[in-house]
């Protein structure tokens, strides 16, 4: 998928565990793990807001767009 999730990078910078973030954000560890692994199909604004609030970052720090090689041509 062209949307890359850099959640693990932001967690490592803040030395925070996935379980702690899940508890603070209010979603299950399995759901957050799905997001971290890039398997999520969609993310709610409320979830994105909660993550940015807890990590004190911008949405662009967590999400990045990397076009596929076919899209460049």
């Amino acid at each position: 998928m062209p949307i890359i999730v850099n959640l693990d990078i932001e967690l490592a910078r803040r030395k925070m565990k996935l379980t702690d973030l899940a508890e603070r954000v209010g979603i299950t560890i399995s759901n957050l793990s799905i997001l971290k692994q890039g398997k999520a199909r969609a993310i709610r604004f409320s979830t994105l807001e909660a993550i940015c609030r807890e990590l004190n970052c911008q949405p662009g720090d967590i999400l990045a767009y990397q076009p596929l090689s076919d899209d460049l041509t």
């Binding site: 759901n31 957050l32 799905i34 997001l35 398997k39 999520a40 199909r41 969609a42 709610r44 979830t47």
Partner: peptide, 8 residues
């Protein structure tokens, strides 16, 4: 349902 389950 799959879409819903994979929506975080």
């Amino acid at each position: 349902q799959e879409e819903q389950e994979l929506t975080v």
